[in-house]
Design a protein around this nucleic acid. Structure first.
Lengths: 349, 349
DNA sequence: CAGGGGCCTGCAAGCGCTTGCAAACTCGGG
DNA sequence: CCCGAGTTTGCAAGCGCTTGCAGGCCCCTG
């Protein structure tokens, strides 16, 4: 394979000059730069990343750690991150934690330690303290996405605000009996997002003078199936049936829509449903939702990493969570509360 | 950071011995090996991948090239591939071609040429001849998944056989008027999979003595939305309504199921639907399908790459397509043809 | 007891690139 | 015409690891 020596020979200069000309560092006479560029392209020369890394200490590669791959949110974040990384000339190496405990541990204790990455992007992970420590021990910039990580700069949407917005949308349509499908209670300790989303829902209700009714909340993991089951219970329960549901994710919301249909309810005539995400499938199901722009989250995280890499002292990016924008998207799954229900409700109040 | 020298000093041996002890190459006395291992773990030493790569010429990293990320099939293949790669101690760096033309080109002309990968796994790509050339020019083992690539060893399911199997399942249930939703005709030139799947459908019909009716075929891209639209046309057309539909993917099949429901048809009473994939969502929609085990495809591809890497002359893996297993999974979306339709059909015959 | 053949281990030369340092050269002002 | 400052280039020393080679040791055989 052609190496820097070949280019140097062809261009009639030293390897040092080739290196400087191609990397843009240091002074090179324009004519020389031109000669070198020409020789390099003629030979199809591309700098050997490994050798360059060894010499500079910078790999032009970032590690992206995800808890799962097979979910819309993660792949979207990765897509956004990768797009930006490519623009900066960086590779992306992927670490997926969805294997067993042993594999998860080995990512932190072995793979990431090989100094193959300049920086790490942690997507939507709730990490143990040990894991955070071992990431810090890398001495590389570290940024999180999809939820705050203590001691780490992160980008995420405000999970409270986001369900608050969704709930307010329903309130503004006149709904008063609003159910919630969200986080699995058992996992709340290790994964705060669902709790936050539920808090936003409750906050919006209280702001509207409505005391949240625990019987209108059903836990679910973040899948259609689980949303379906929760909605069935919510809609079929002994209680006064809600006129609207806010689900903590679009997939659960879609499950709820399908459950409603199966129960003979028409959306949005008999039931309004709103989710969070703006999932790929949301338009198809005509689902109102709150767009959380995951690709943007990935892009912003990469930008921050790049900034951190440019500074000599990588650590002076403040370790706080930066909120990212989100947008209410009204489609056809939400509508004004039906008159009858409104009447029932006002009779209540 | 601790380097090999530190370990050598602590263990009281030379760096050469540390290297040999840790890598398992060459002879090292058991006692020495033990000492070194102890010193290394005490210091938390992990070999620097960059330096090791430079010295050995092997990176312990493979590039995975995908056309999109945000689709079930690709992420599933990647998950399988990554799992295996981890077991072999390999990293995975991801190249996503879903950007613009320029970005796509730069993956082939720049990123992959940096010698950062030992091998390349190309997932479900229909590559241009130039692109295949540039992959070969890497001089690294190359394996494809998800469809044959000329001149490259690949793993994939037999796309003809797979829809043939699905169609035969419907035939065995007594269906005679079977529609197909599949590949977008416009893309057929560059992407053969849909055509193959359609061919399998037609083959099964002919084997059963039924001449495929072009009006029972509707093109669609591989999304729910598109499957929904195609199914609406298929079911609402002027012709004799089919009693069953075989869709070229589960997402299209699910679209079809929803379309049927929206038209007041009950699945499987009024219409049987079968897809291909065994998508994550298939169980939820109770969809009969043909499982194509994408994670397995990823795993097998990695195994072949590893074998190729072990051989001195990387190229003597035969450049043929190896068929992988697939399995009919019968769920609740397919059933015996209704008597009335059967009667109509026999009246026809 | 001498000699031969394995085993272990260390030495040192790279792997392909970057970069501090210094030499050589250019140019303008005095 | 000379000198100094600035520009351009090359030299060579690494970056941290691997590995061919050779030396030292030990043990077995004749």
């Amino acid at each position: 394979m052609t190496g820097i020596d070949d280019v140097a020979k062809l261009a009639g200069v030293s390897t040092a000059t080739v290196s400087r000309a191609l990397s843009g560092r240091g002074h090179v006479a324009p004519a020389t730069r031109e000669k070198v560029a020409h020789a390099a392209s003629q030979l199809g020369y591309v700098v050997n990343a490994e050798a360059s890394s060894l010499a500079t200490g910078r790999t032009r590669n970032v590690g992206v750690v995800v808890p799962f791959l097979n979910r819309w949110f993660y792949t979207s974040v990765i897509e956004g991150a990768q797009r930006r990384l490519m623009q900066y000339g960086y590779d992306l190496t992927l670490y997926n934690l969805s294997g067993n405990e042993h594999e998860r541990a080995s990512v932190f204790e072995h793979f990431l330690l090989r100094k193959r990455v300049d920086a790490v992007l942690a997507v939507s992970l709730e990490l143990t303290a040990d894991e955070v420590d071992s990431l810090h021990a890398l001495g590389r910039p570290l940024v999180g996405v999809g939820g705050p990580i203590p001691g780490v700069p992160t980008f995420s949407i405000d999970d409270v605000a986001v369900t608050k917005l969704a709930t307010e949308h329903l309130l503004s349509l006149g709904h008063r009996v609003i159910g919630h499908i969200g986080g699995d209670v058992e996992r709340e300790l290790s994964f705060h997002l669902p709790t936050h989303r539920r808090a936003g829902y409750e906050l919006a209700l209280r702001d509207a003078g409505i005391e949240p009714d625990p019987e209108l909340y059903f836990p679910a993991v973040f899948t259609m199936e689980s949303g379906y089951q929760a909605a069935k219970q919510l809609l079929g329960g002994p209680r006064h049936r809600p006129t609207a549901i806010v689900a903590a994710s679009d997939e659960m919301a879609i499950g709820a829509i399908i459950a409603a249909r199966d129960m003979g309810l028409e959306v949005p005539r008999d039931l309004s449903v709103i989710g969070i995400d703006n999932h790929d499938l949301a338009p198809f199901f005509n689902l109102s939702t709150v767009d959380q722009h995951p690709e943007l989250q990935g892009e912003r995280a990469v930008e921050l990493l790049m900034k951190a890499l440019q500074q000599s002292n990588g650590d002076d990016v403040p370790a706080v969570d930066q909120p990212l924008p989100f947008d209410l998207i009204v489609r056809g799954s939400t509508a004004r509360v039906p008159l009858t229900a409104a009447a029932v409700d006002s009779a209540h109040g």
